[in-house]
Structures are given as structure tokens and as C-alpha cells.
């Protein structure tokens, strides 16, 4: 299903701040004023290097952290601060997360069937045990595993299969929003392609929205409708995938795109990646505002900087 940009956004993040206090004198500002929205049926890619705060955003949205400041609206409900019972129920059943390391996120002492069915148990989502098994079998089939894998344990699977279990666990709840946090980074190239295709197929079938967090721009390009580029907790550039790749404006985005290795030896041997160093760039992420470049393409900076980049 194509993204529906006329509808109300399913998720709206406004000026999200997530600070971690290390000690009395030092606070890590992992996310410092990030805003974006995700529309129904859209895949939104969040990219940036490690430490840029992309995973933190994902975890704040699903409320694994308590956001320091800002407002997150999910399906029209405010999910920051204290939530009503009803809001909590919606959040916990309609927003799901797929984690990076499938071995660390699956309980090694539970069978696959138990792991996948746990959400159904907690939220009483099945009338009887047979119905539950049917649901589990259906989802296993959808992610490319077979029903008799149900009684096996996570260690009996390969990395790619384990990640499929993680995906099945998220999708069995029929979520409206799935947060995929680096869900392919730990996999081999050929398995990555399988998992990305699987996610894409399922997304087209169910029409749910995805927040796809990754540092691999070439995969993000493949899967996302729109992209947000993060660095040091600030959203530097956002736009549709075509806009960002055809005309990157911010020097950080340019360096990210130039760093992607291409499978072309002639070209690759000569190419030197553009380096970007925040300390030396003379930029200050705390000063500036979003500037419209074209369509939905925005870049963050002061007036002079943006004029300079656009030259």
C-alpha cells in the first residue's frame, strides 16, 4: 500500500528531547529537539552514524525511555507523560519493535511458539488455544518459517531465521506502526536482501507504517519512502528518498552518501570519501532553522549556511 499523505499522520514527533544525566555536571543530549511525522502506510527511514541518536528516538517513541521534553502523538493520542489505561493499551498493541540483535532479543529458554504468542497471551487476543496456534502458524508462514519450527528454541536457528522470528513476534499483533531498529545490520548481505524484501512485502500487504532505523544508506534507499538524516541528536535533513539522494544539501548528508561503498572496482579505487567533522566544520546545530529546498525536502541550518550549500 502506498503512503497516504492526505490522512492524519499516524505518528507525530514534535521537538523530542531525550537527555541522559551522567552526573551532576554532565548530561548526554542524545536527542535534542527532533520533529517528524509518519503517515499511514509509509516507511520512514532514519539514518545517521552510531551515537547520532537514531535508536534512542525509536526507544523513546515506544516509551522504553521517558522523554525529557517534547510531544509524541500516536493515532491522535498523546503518549508522552502519564498515559491513561486506554492509551497504554493502544500503544502496547499497535506499536511494535524489531530489535537489532536477534540472539539478544529472543529469550533462549522459550520456544519460538511461546515467544511469538506472548503478546497474544498478555492482551488476551484469542478465544481459545487452537485459534492461537492457527494465528502463530499463519504468521510463521508469512515470514518464511514453517509451522513445525514452533517447538524449537532460538539457538537452533540461523541469524536470518532468528530475525524472522523477531519480525513474526512484532507482526502477529497487527501493529499500525513497526519500529525496526537496525534489524538487518547483524545479517549477511544475501540474508539482508531476503529480510528487506520480506518487510517490504508484508508492509505492502498490511499497509502498516514503518520507522526503519539503519546506518546503511543503500538499504534505506531501497525500503524507505522518506528519509531523515540525524547527527548528534539533531535532524539535519529530511525529504523523500529521491530528493535526498538526488540532491543532498547538508555536508553531513553528502559525506554519508559518499561513504557508501559501490560494487564497482574501477570507480571505487579512485574515489575518496568526503570526510565530515563536526568540530572542524564550524557548524552549530543549536543555531538555525529548517529551510525548504524543494517539495518536502528540508535542510537545517542558518540562512547564510543554507544559501552557501545551495549555491
Amino acid at each position: 500500500m502506498a503512503a497516504n499523505y492526505n490522512a492524519e499522520p499516524i505518528l507525530k514527533v514534535e521537538n523530542l528531547k531525550q537527555h541522559f544525566k551522567v552526573n551532576r555536571n554532565f548530561t548526554v543530549k542524545a536527542v535534542d529537539g527532533v520533529s517528524f511525522e509518519i503517515y499511514p502506510g509509509e516507511i520512514y527511514g532514519l539514518v545517521g552514524e552510531s551515537g547520532s541518536g537514531k535508536s534512542t528516538i525509536g526507544r523513546s517513541i515506544i516509551r522504553l525511555y521517558e522523554p525529557t521534553d517534547g510531544k509524541i502523538t500516536f493515532k491522535g493520542m498523546d503518549i508522552t507523560g502519564k498515559m491513561s489505561r486506554e492509551t497504554k493499551e493502544t500503544l502496547r498493541t499497535k506499536m511494535m519493535m524489531i530489535f537489532q540483535d536477534p540472539m539478544a532479543s529472543l529469550n533462549p529458554r522459550k520456544t519460538i511458539g511461546d515467544i511469538i504468542g506472548e503478546g497474544l497471551d498478555i492482551h488476551h487476543m484469542y478465544p481459545n488455544k487452537i485459534e492461537k496456534q492457527v494465528m502463530i502458524n499463519r504468521i510463521l508462514q508469512k515470514v518464511g518459517l514453517s509451522a513445525d519450527h514452533c517447538n524449537r528454541y532460538p539457538h537452533q536457528f540461523s541469524g536470518g531465521q532468528r530475525q524472522r522470528v523477531g519480525i513474526a513476534r512484532a507482526l502477529i499483533m497487527n501493529p499500525d506502526l513497526v519500529i525496526a531498529d537496525e534489524c538487518i545490520s547483524a545479517l549477511d548481505v544475501s540474508i539482508q536482501a531476503q529480510v528487506v524484501n520480506l518487510l517490504k512485502d508484508i508492509q505492502e500487504e498490511t499497509g502498516s507504517s514503518y520507522l526503519f532505523i539503519a546506518h546503511d544508506l543503500s538499504m534505506v534507499k531501497y525500503i524507505s519512502d522518506r528519509i531523515g538524516v540525524l547527527h548528534l541528536g539533531h535532524m539535519l535533513e529530511t525529504g523523500t528518498t529521491e530528493e535526498i539522494f538526488a540532491r543532498p544539501v547538508h555536508p553531513y548528508t553528502k559525506s554519508l552518501i559518499s561513504a557508501i561503498p559501490l560494487p564497482n572496482p574501477e570507480l571505487e579505487r579512485k574515489r575518496v570519501a568526503v570526510s565530515y567533522d563536526y568540530a572542524k566544520s564550524g557548524l552549530d546545530y543549536n543555531v538555525g532553522s529548517n529551510h525548504l529546498v524543494e517539495g518536502t525536502h528540508y535542510v537545517f541550518g542558518t540562512d547564510e549556511q543554507v544559501a552557501e550549500w545551495l549555491k
Binding site: 540461523s158 544475501s190 536482501a193 528487506v196 543503500s218 534507499k221 559501490l262 560494487p263
Partner: peptide, 23 residues
């Protein structure tokens, strides 16, 4: 061939990545 096709590259317009079937 399969390995090369499975590499996402920035130019290809296909919406699906090629995968080598099986494991």
C-alpha cells in the same frame, strides 16, 4: 551472479532486491 545482484546499488530503480533462494 547472485551475490552481485543482491547488493543494493544506488542506481537500480527496482523496488525488490534480488535474493539467492534458500540458505
Amino acid at each position: 551472479w547472485g551475490l552481485l545482484s543482491a547488493m543494493p546499488d544506488l542506481e537500480t530503480e527496482d523496488s525488490r532486491l534480488y535474493t539467492i533462494p534458500g540458505s
